[in-house]
Design a binder for these strands. Structure first.
Lengths: 173, 173
DNA sequence: ACAATGATTGACTAATCAGTCTACAAATAT
DNA sequence: ATATTTGTAGACTGATTAGTCAATCATTGT
């Protein structure tokens, strides 16, 4: 509903109704509407992170692990479009600025470590990991936007993902 | 104010006050608050577009023209952070979905044409221009996010822009 | 069996908001 | 000079909203 109508155009009364509970119940679990929004963001973000690292055996080469994470992320986004869109909407909203810097770095830590390993192993080009991370995230956001902009067959979609991965991989290695 | 507080947390009364006019005056020029928001988006977007193509002499090589557009865009974004942030906020909000598809393609047309020329000239890799366009936009959004995340000296900033341009250029050519 | 705590309800409220309306002022046209 | 249109003002309204509250209901521990 936040994605469809926006944060403030989605009243708590409708959220409660959609959830099948009374108005008061909602405020029993979340002191304020903002708290609910933050909780939803954290919840959604952790779902994505969990899915990203699924099937990531540490035996594979760094490229294969990275490709697995890349593919997983896009797959999750395509199968959970509202959730992914919500993350983006939240990230570019004033709400995002209210999250503590600490929380954000904590969230990004595992990803940054992974990239740092890649640099240390002389696989990934030496550059600030923050920059690298941002570039990768933006790239993935772009691919998702493209994949959502029109209807592709599953095969065509896989082809796009493979090719765009190669572009990204060549760029950072 | 939209960037700072969000769309609905910015009442028309405060907009009018900030603009130094009475409440009624605002609604004399914009029938609804939404109309004002759309107008602000169109206004801001056209400012950016104008700046992007500044100093773009058609005599230069395609790479130099592209680099000029690239640099201009990032410069504008860094010098007009709230405006750039507003465009991003708007683009990932439910408002964006209310803009006609026609309007969007019309807006992107010159950029797509430019990229198409690059492909025809065998400078840019052959791929769907939509995809190319999205990748470039995402890349630029990422760089801006990175540049805004910490304070860089002007020299350092220029260095980052140059290096990241090279990454992008190598990726698409 | 009986406390005690936690969960659920929905009517209620105080505040806020987008948009209206009437009156007046300024500018422009005749 | 007068008439007509356009711009400005700000008090006002009806609707909506986040959040409260007092009263039940359910669950758990003893």
């Amino acid at each position: 509903m936040f994605v469809e109508f926006g944060f403030h155009a989605t009243p708590t009364s409708k959220i409660a109704k959609e959830a099948g509970v009374a108005n008061g119940t909602l405020f029993h679990y979340y002191k304020t509407k903002d708290e609910l929004i933050f909780a939803l963001y954290a919840h959604t973000k952790s779902h994505l992170t969990e899915y990203m690292y699924a099937n990531a055996s540490k035996d594979e080469s760094l490229e294969l692990v990275f490709k697995s994470i890349y593919t997983n992320t896009i797959e999750w986004a395509q199968e959970n479009k509202p959730e992914f869109y919500f993350i983006q909407q939240f990230s570019t909203s004033p709400f995002y600025g209210l999250i503590s810097h600490e929380e954000i770095t904590k969230q990004a830590k595992p990803h940054l470590d992974f990239l740092q390993d890649g640099i240390k192993a002389a696989v990934i080009k030496p550059m600030p990991v923050d920059l690298l991370y941002t570039l990768i995230n933006s790239h993935i956001a772009g691919i998702n936007q493209y994949l959502s902009s029109q209807e592709f067959s599953t095969d065509k979609q896989k082809k796009i993902i493979n090719e765009s991965f190669q572009l990204l991989w060549d760029m950072i290695t």
